[in-house]
């Protein structure tokens, strides 16, 4: 199976280890992973600001880079959410439609497409709080949401549950947004920071040693908040745990 790896700009610049873990993890399942070198961004930061004109050439480049692959996989829920639900600044050609329907966030790719049964190499003997980003929770429907009162399900927990030694803790408000929100984190700094401080405090109070998420952007924000508050919390992307990181 051939897969194109999309490493979003944040991950490329700040969390290369998340990109590496994603790549290695996919390779463990015998997948032929390619990383198109001319990739940049999916257009989300521009489109989320309402700037369709500015998003258009970025989205066009994204489609050009990825249209020839049967699957596009990325360790980012929010980018997948954008590509799947909002990438419409450019004419909706067959190539665009293909990219939009064949881009998968890593967790759903492992859970729904590969239907992974086990991660024999993975062991994470820590207390972990799961942060479902809003893009994964309500956008991609990774997990049941408290708003709807629906039967419980969670793709990330289903995967993490296969990791040896892992222990989960649940914060008071597991579904609450952490306040990153892309450019929201800057233009609405006071609220963003308050939400982030509340989020990491909630996880800490629940006894978490680590916060794990499928979105590096949320983690970057929360890590910044936790460090400023002096909270002893560590942050890890789900790809790293599933790929066998021990800490």
């Amino acid at each position: 199976m051939k897969v194109a790896l999309f490493v979003p700009c944040f991950v490329d610049a700040f969390f290369p280890e998340v990109g590496i873990a994603t790549l290695e993890l996919l390779e463990r399942f015998g997948i032929d992973v390619e990383y198109p070198l001319t990739q940049t961004c999916c257009g989300q930061p521009l489109a989320n600001s309402g700037c369709q004109v500015e998003a258009a050439p970025v989205e066009a480049l994204f489609v050009k880079n990825f249209a020839d692959y049967p699957y596009i996989v990325t360790p980012s829920g929010s980018c997948t959410h954008h590509v799947r639900h909002y990438l419409d600044a450019i004419p909706q050609t067959d190539a665009v439609r293909h990219v939009r329907t064949h881009t998968f966030e890593l967790v759903e790719f492992l859970h729904d497409i590969l239907e992974v049964e086990a991660f024999p190499w993975a062991e994470f003997p820590h207390k972990v709080g799961l942060h479902n980003s809003c893009g994964t929770l309500r956008g991609l429907r990774h997990a049941s949401m408290s708003e709807l009162g629906e039967p419980f399900f969670s793709k990330p927990l289903a995967l993490l549950g296969k990791v040896k030694g892992i222990e989960f803790v649940t914060p008071q408000r597991p579904d609450e947004c952490c306040g990153f929100g892309g450019t929201f984190s800057l233009f609405e700094e006071p609220v963003s920071a308050k939400m982030g401080h509340d989020k990491v405090s909630d996880h800490k109070a629940a006894g978490a040693d680590y916060i794990v998420s499928a979105d590096s952007s949320c983690l970057m924000h929360q890590k910044g908040c936790a460090e400023r508050l002096g909270l002893d919390l560590k942050f890890v992307h789900i790809a790293q745990i599933l790929n066998g990181a021990r800490a």
Partner: peptide
């Protein structure tokens, strides 16, 4: 705006691309 109430992310030695 980032750094007012948050620490900046650490800068890795290289990008994923690198």
């Amino acid at each position: 705006a980032w750094g007012k109430q948050r620490e900046n992310p650490a800068t890795p030695d290289q990008t994923f691309y690198g």
